[in-house]
Lab assay of single mutants.
Amino acid sequence: MEVRTIKVFTTVDNINLHTQVVDMSMTYGQQFGPTYLDGADVTKIKPHNSHEGKTFYVLPNDDTLRVEAFEYYHTTDPSFLGRYMSALNHTKKWKYPQVNGLTSIKWADNNCYLATALLTLQQIELKFNPPALQDAYYRARAGEAANFCALILAYCNKTVGELGDVRETMSYLFQHANLDSCKRVLNVVCKTCGQQQTTLKGVEAVMYMGTLSYEQFKKGVQIPCTCGKQATKYLVQQESPFVMMSAPPAQYELKHGTFTCASEYTGNYQCGHYKHITSKETLYCIDGALLTKSSEYKGPITDVFYKENSYTTTIK
């Protein structure tokens, strides 16, 4: 009895394709271990004539594949690729409408935090270190965002349907971005203890939790000093293409032309909904596939993004 075979390709990165001759009487799992086709788990399936010449994702289970996976995804987590594939199996079914010149995501599976993050990423200057993220990001900007969303979920250790947080998501993504040249110098002034300067680099240099107003941050924000008295913390120097200011959701007025974009969060910790506000020729609110415009805006804002380049204080 002759062994019926077909020729397929296996890959971990969709760049390096490895030619395989597979036995049609055995499952993919018996031949390769966990195997995925377009995100779908085909591990328990036997090869079919229609699979001839198709590319299958496999887990990096030998040295060659491990090197290829690390170079593309910059992670050695053995569960990463499987999590990416199972997320992709959902995100490829989502709709990605162009809204006001940006790629958004039609609401499904509690994905409003991903839509808000995706919209924000198209408006701030950011370059990702893992080629996987950078490639998928370019495709997302062009309207094909399924891979990018699935990668975000995998890097953030999230599953489809789980509630997510924009600030946490951005923080994970910033860790995989090139923020080497970003720098922030802060000064804390206390009447009792004097003053202390701190220099922050990388992710810490672009994120701040405690106030939404970048102007206020430049002037000074009140913080408790270690001595128990009130101290003032203010920005001395900022070198970065953008800054992200966050605070627990509270009524906040966004003035046209003073910011790049913002995240609105309605609801409580267990259950809520994100919308995205962007400042173009007027203010726009993007909620999944829905767009509304207004000249002014007041609502429960939790993150505001500002364009920056270089700032030095005039406070002496």
Rank of each mutant, 00 (worst) to 15 (best):
L235N: 06
V67A: 15
Q238N: 03
Y311W: 14
G220V: 03
A87H: 04
N61P: 07
T35Q: 06
L37S: 09
D109F: 02
T169L: 15
V185T: 11
A247Q: 09
L235Y: 05
P78K: 15
N89R: 07
I45Q: 10
D62E: 14
R167V: 08
A140F: 01
K106L: 00
R184S: 11
L173K: 03
L283R: 07
V3C: 15
L163M: 12
L119Q: 03
N178R: 12
K158E: 00
Q238V: 01
A69R: 01
L163I: 14
E68Q: 10
G82A: 14
T199A: 09
Q238M: 03
T211D: 06
Y155F: 04
D77P: 02
A117Q: 00
T19R: 11
D109I: 00
K46R: 13
D180G: 15
G82V: 10
L37H: 13
F148S: 03
G272S: 05
I124A: 03
P248H: 10
N100M: 15
C112Q: 12
K275Q: 14
Y234R: 09
S50G: 11
E52S: 13
V22N: 00
E125L: 03
F242P: 09
Q196V: 10
T10R: 11
V8I: 11
K44F: 14
W107P: 15
T11W: 02
N157G: 13
A154M: 01
S213F: 00
Q20E: 10
A136L: 01
A205V: 02
E281H: 06
P248V: 11
N61Q: 07
T10P: 00
V58Q: 09
K218E: 09
M244H: 12
Y269S: 13
T232C: 08
F80D: 04
P47M: 02
L163E: 10
K46G: 14
Y265L: 13
D13F: 00
T159Y: 14
K316P: 15
R167P: 05
M26Q: 15
T232P: 02
Y155S: 00
F217T: 06
S240D: 05
E253N: 15
L254K: 08
C149E: 00
S294K: 14
A115S: 14
T10N: 08
V304Y: 04
Y297S: 04
P249K: 04
T55Q: 08
L102W: 07
P131M: 04
K298M: 14
G288I: 00
A136W: 05
Q123Y: 00
R4D: 11
G53I: 02
Q134G: 02
V206C: 09
I223H: 14
A247C: 11
R83F: 03
T19I: 13
A146N: 01
N110C: 03
L81I: 15
I301C: 05
N187P: 06
A289V: 09
S104E: 00
M85A: 07
S240I: 05
M26S: 02
A231C: 12
E168M: 04
K316S: 13
L114R: 01
C112Y: 01
D23Y: 10
Y234E: 04
A150C: 00
G210Q: 08
L163V: 12
Y269M: 15
Y172P: 00
K46W: 11
L88A: 00
F80R: 01
V236P: 03
T312P: 14
I152Y: 01
S279M: 05
T75C: 08
V42F: 10
N147W: 02
G194D: 02
M85W: 06
E204H: 08
G257Q: 06
P300R: 14
E264S: 14
S295L: 12
T260G: 06
G202R: 06
S246W: 02
P60C: 07
E281Q: 06
P47N: 06
P131I: 00
T211V: 14
A289N: 04
R167L: 04
K46N: 12
M207C: 14
G101H: 04
P249H: 04
L291E: 11
T199N: 11
L88E: 00
K54L: 13
Y311C: 08
G228C: 08
E68M: 11
P97Y: 11
T292N: 12
K280C: 08
T312E: 13
V67F: 15
Y269F: 14
L118M: 11
D63H: 09
Y137D: 02
F174N: 01
M244P: 08
L254A: 02
D38R: 11
V188E: 00
Y284N: 13
G161H: 03
A140D: 07
V58K: 11
Y269T: 09
A247S: 13
L173I: 10
C190Y: 01
T5H: 15
T159D: 15
Q134P: 02
T198P: 05
T312Q: 13
G161M: 00
S86M: 15
E215C: 03
E52C: 09
Q222C: 09
F174K: 01
S294T: 12
Q196N: 15
E239N: 07
R167Q: 07
Y284L: 13
L126E: 11
E308R: 08
K158H: 08
P47Y: 00
T91A: 06
L291H: 07
N61A: 12
G164Y: 03
H18V: 08
K7I: 00
E125S: 04
